[in-house]
Structures are given as structure tokens and as C-alpha cells.
Design a protein around this nucleic acid. Structure first.
Lengths: 146, 146
DNA sequence: TCAAATTTGGTTGTGCGCAATTTAATTTTG
DNA sequence: CAAAATTAAATTGCGCACAACCAAATTTGA
């Protein structure tokens, strides 16, 4: 009964995971040059996106939005604090919560960051419908988390 | 002239990069449980996929297929060698090349690995057309590398 | 009311990814 | 042919991701 197993499903090209993994790394890598100019890494950048949107937000809520845990966020937020872009303060009504807030420098950085998505977007050769379809499917995958 | 800048493009939801990054991590994380059972990490797994397909392949060619460099592959391949799944030998006709080949144990592991893509696939709630469309677009993104 | 359970963030350790540099082997060229 | 250029892999160092564990604050519920 054995000897003739079908290993087709183990081919690199026959699993969705690999193109997803490779495309993610490829796109993230395109942020490197523009982000180097403003001195942020990719993860620091998406963290700043969240802080810019909320002005004040807890580590817990950043984690929910980015799907990252404290093991990733704690050292990253300390680094952003060192760079002077954010402040970290315990919430006075619940000392378990750590609130992250924007500094003046952090707010100023936002203007410089405006160029980043522009520079990346023009390297992506997809039709608008392809982008929106892609986003819809990806959100479906992410949404399956909960 | 300033004061009323449009920061819409800096919203987390308005860039393709984030859902791609999040979905990639989400899907890779679904491999963890099945891969734990056979003692491989995700990157070790896709490396074994390539070795299973080729039986003998150089580090250079593995890198081309997975878009990974020696900084990632060298320690990973040493670990796979320690586990007894592969052998590493310099190519006799070009000593710069390091050929990776399957051991008996490595070949046997392939049968156990057959369950992995099955277990992951059934956690992905996408229609077949969605999967194929997704793969097509992702390959378009990856293909832009060259 | 107070002990148990939960929540939040921090810490530690492992394994990638990737840039930058190094070393050795091979190929190209003057 | 010998020097220069190229190529392949290894090494080093940094920054994530993530699991596992911990401590402190808060909530709960008997």
C-alpha cells in the first residue's frame, strides 16, 4: 500500500504559505530605504502609525491593533522613547496599563513620514482592483484569528 | 500653506503592507502546532520542502528559491544537519558550493510531514478561487524582485 | 472581606531575516 | 600566466516575533 505516496502537497509552489511569507518580506523590505531616511525600522514605523492615529494609547491596545505582544513591544517602545518620539506613563486609574503618548518630536516626525508610503506605493506594480481584492482577502485571513 | 496636511495615507488600514505582514505571521503561526509534532520550525520546514524536491541542492540554489541568504541559511542548515535530516558537503568540482543532501532520516521525515499542509489547509477559510487569485497576486509581488 | 483568578506589562531565551564584512575558490583579463 | 574581479558561504551584530515565565495591580466571588 505504500511506496507510491503523493508528495505533491509538499511542493513549495503548492502551498499558500510560501508566497505570502515571501511577499510580506519583499514588501517590508521596500520600506527599508525610505524608513532609513527617517531613522525607523518597519515595526517601529507601524507602531508610530498607531500612536499618530491615537495620540495616547495603551501598550495593550497597540498590541491588539498590530497583533504583537509585550515581548516585542516593550523593547521597541523603549527604543522609541529613547529616540524621543513617545513617552511611556502608567495609567493613573489603572496602574497595570502603560499609556504611550506622542512627544513634540514624535508629532514632527509625522510630516517626514508622509513621504514613506508614497515612495513605497510607486514600486508596487498592481492595479487598484488587485490591491483592494488582495487587502480584502488578507483581512479575511487575519480576521480568522478571533 | 501647512496646518491642514492630509495624513490619511499614514493610517494603518490604508497601506497594503500591514495586512500582508499580519496575514503572513498569522498563517505561519498556524504551522507551529503541526510542525512542533515533527520537530521543525517554519523556516526549517520550507527548507526541507526544497531539499525533498531536489534531493541534492546547493545552499546558493536554496537561497534563490526561498529568497534567503547565507546569514539565515548557514545556521539553519547546520541545525538540520545536527538533527540528522541532511548532510552538507562541498561540491568536488567547485569548492565554493556547499551541497545539501537528504539522509535516510530526512527522507523518512517526509512521510510525517505529509500531515502538515493538510492540518493547516483546513484552518484556512477561503474559497479555492480566492486562494488561486491570492497566489497569483502574491507571485506578481514576489516576481517584481528581479 | 479576602483569597483566588485575571489582566497587564516586563523579562528571558530561541530562531529567524538581513545588512555588512570576511575568507576561500574560481573566473576574467590585461 | 598573474593580478583583479567575481562568486559562495561563513561570521557578526542588530532587531524583531514569539513562547514561557514572572510580578504587580485589579477584579471576582465565595
Amino acid at each position: 500500500m505504500s511506496g507510491e505516496k503523493n508528495y505533491e502537497c509538499l511542493r513549495l509552489g503548492n502551498q499558500m504559505c510560501f508566497p505570502l511569507y515571501a511577499a510580506s518580506r519583499e514588501i517590508v523590505s521596500r520600506y527599508k530605504a525610505p524608513l532609513d531616511e527617517i531613522g525607523l525600522t518597519y515595526t517601529q514605523y507601524i507602531t508610530m502609525l498607531v500612536v499618530w492615529e491615537h495620540n495616547v494609547i495603551s501598550v495593550k491596545d497597540i498590541g491588539k491593533l498590530l497583533y504583537l505582544d509585550s515581548g516585542t513591544l516593550t523593547p521597541l517602545l523603549k527604543k522609541l522613547e529613547q529616540k524621543g518620539y513617545i513617552e511611556r506613563k502608567r495609567d493613573s486609574s489603572d496602574e497595570r496599563l502603560l499609556n504611550v503618548s506622542l512627544t513634540e518630536e514624535g508629532l514632527a516626525l509625522r510630516d517626514k513620514a508622509l513621504e514613506v508610503p508614497e515612495k513605497v506605493a510607486c514600486t508596487i506594480d498592481l492595479a487598484p482592483e488587485e490591491v483592494s481584492f488582495l487587502c480584502r482577502i488578507l483581512h479575511k485571513l487575519i480576521g480568522e484569528k478571533e
